[in-house]
Design a binder for these strands. Structure first.
Length: 230
DNA sequence: AACCAGGACGTGA
DNA sequence: TCACGTCATGGT
């Protein structure tokens, strides 16, 4: 039940987060002026995305680019790709790795990410339905968190994402131990809240928003108000 | 000027 | 299985 209360408290505190951000959305996120970082591309209370296969592919590209990288850097890379009309599985899969690498340079790890974007482009072209988690995990460059991100935001499948922030917060709240494994944490959360992709999407985004405020460097996690409500 | 961000992979014990 | 090194730019 604590995980339910945490969700409700975070939603009350920060509002709907409108993930996953998309380049085509100018500023539906204007209702949330307190959000940290960029507010471009978010679409609070609008769960219709992705509306096209290209939007779906954009999300998938984003999940790979944002691995261990700030979203502001990913935005720069996505805009560079967009200018060349390369947020397209066919076009990106036909591109030279060196060209992609140069365009996504701001997102870091550009050599390996370029290779993986081309691979995922080829995979996407052949993919005609919702993939399974196991299928995604077989792709080079897609680990547990990225697989869950793709399922949850690109395919609206209720697969909860466990990231470093989730681990940090739940550890601080003594709901898990430091050495808890990815799948243990995932199961704990999924068994505690309704199996609804909208709730999963919001919850993960709220965790990120909250952690940016209380769990990053130079910020005191002891000020986290969640400890008082669970 | 270190330190870290919406991780994953390859290697060796 | 698990710990560790590697990949890399941009903001604080």
């Amino acid at each position: 039940m604590p995980l339910q209360k945490i969700y409700k408290q975070l939603l009350k505190e920060y509002g709907h987060q409108g993930w996953w951000p998309l380049l085509s959305i100018e500023n539906e996120g204007g209702e949330n002026p307190t959000k940290t970082g960029s507010i471009k591309g978010y679409h609070p209370k609008n769960y219709s995305h992705p509306r096209t296969e290209l939007e779906r592919f954009e999300i998938i590209i984003g999940t790979i680019l944002t691995q261990n990288t700030s979203w502001t850097n990913v935005e720069k890379a996505l805009i560079n790709l967009e200018k060349e009309n390369l947020i397209d599985p066919k076009k990106i899969s036909e591109s030279k790795k060196e060209k992609i690498a140069e365009l996504i340079r701001p997102a870091g790890y550009f050599n390996q990410k370029a290779e993986r974007l081309i691979l995922v482009g080829n995979w996407f072209l052949a993919q005609k339905q919702t993939p399974t988690r196991e299928e995604l995990l077989q792709l080079k460059g897609i680990g547990p968190e990225t697989a869950d991100s793709i399922l949850l935001y690109a395919y609206k499948e209720p697969s909860f994402i466990v990231d470093a922030y989730t681990r940090r917060i739940l550890t601080n709240l003594n709901l898990i131990t430091e050495n808890a494994k990815y799948d243990e944490i995932k199961q704990l959360i999924e068994s505690s809240i309704p199996k609804d992709f909208k709730i999963y999407q919001e919850y993960h985004a709220l965790i990120v928003e909250h952690a940016k405020r209380y769990y990053t460097k130079n910020k005191n996690k002891d000020n986290c108000f969640l400890k008082a409500i669970i």
